[in-house]
């Protein structure tokens, strides 16, 4: 565990906390894409199939449980909570899940570390995580007034990915035989998807203006 990896995980955790804060305290999910949240739940469910069979560390198991629990409860809140669900605008959140799920599944069947159920599911989860933010980014573009918490949520998610890249660079130079093409390429694609958002996020921050993405 290096400082970049820890900072990445903590940023990821912070993004989830910001979203839970918005949902729990403000009782609103306005501007949040249910599609993206459902994809994340699927990402964690398929990636952490090893949670009860393989042990890495207490830290690892705890974080897995947190990400599984939080992602499924966020989906539950948006879909079923009496007050929160009212702020969900279905007509704006139109991205189709299967446009992302099916290509990722096919790619996972072709490109994986080993052709076993667990490894194919793991590769699928890596590919799906890379593109799971797309429905959220599309929704942001359609939202005229992006509130601060939503902006911070997406910013923290992007920052988590950028820190993971630093972690890989660090591990590549400090560990022997540390080469992971699947995670590297997907992680790079995932981080690049945030580039446009980052640009406007920093612009709005610099000029002290409300965040708005050009349509």
């Amino acid at each position: 565990m290096n400082i970049f990896r820890l900072a990445g995980d903590m940023t990821h955790l912070a993004s989830v906390l910001v979203l839970l804060l918005k949902i729990h305290t403000i009782k609103s999910c306005a501007g949040i894409s249910l599609k993206t949240q459902e994809l994340y739940a699927l990402v964690f469910a398929t990636r952490y199939l090893d949670i009860f069979t393989d042990f890495i560390s207490l830290y690892n198991t705890t974080m897995k449980l947190i990400f599984l629990g939080s992602s499924f409860s966020i989906v539950w809140y948006i879909r079923n909570h009496k007050i929160v669900s009212r702020s969900y605008d279905k007509s704006q959140d139109t991205f189709r899940h299967y446009f992302l799920i099916i290509p990722c599944l096919l790619l996972a069947l072709l490109v994986n570390e080993k052709f076993t159920f667990k490894e194919v599911m793991w590769a699928f989860s890596i590919y799906l995580e890379a593109v799971a933010i797309l429905p959220q980014l599309v929704l942001l573009q359609r939202t005229r007034n992006i509130d601060n918490l939503t902006g911070q949520y997406v910013f923290l998610l992007g920052a988590y990915r950028a820190l993971y890249i630093l972690n890989w660079i660090y591990r590549y130079f400090t560990e022997t035989h540390y080469v992971h093409w699947i995670t590297w390429v997907s992680g790079l694609v995932q981080t690049l998807l945030y580039a446009d958002f980052f640009y406007y996020y920093f612009e709005s921050w610099k000029n002290n203006k409300k965040l708005q993405l050009p349509a």
Binding site: R5, D9, H12, R47, D50, F52, T53, D54, F55, I56, N60, M63, K64, F67, E113, W122, Y164, N167, T183
Partner: peptide, 10 residues
């Protein structure tokens, strides 16, 4: 429970 060094990232 077995200790693995495969996918140690989250």
């Amino acid at each position: 429970l077995k200790v693995v060094d495969g996918h140690d990232e989250l």
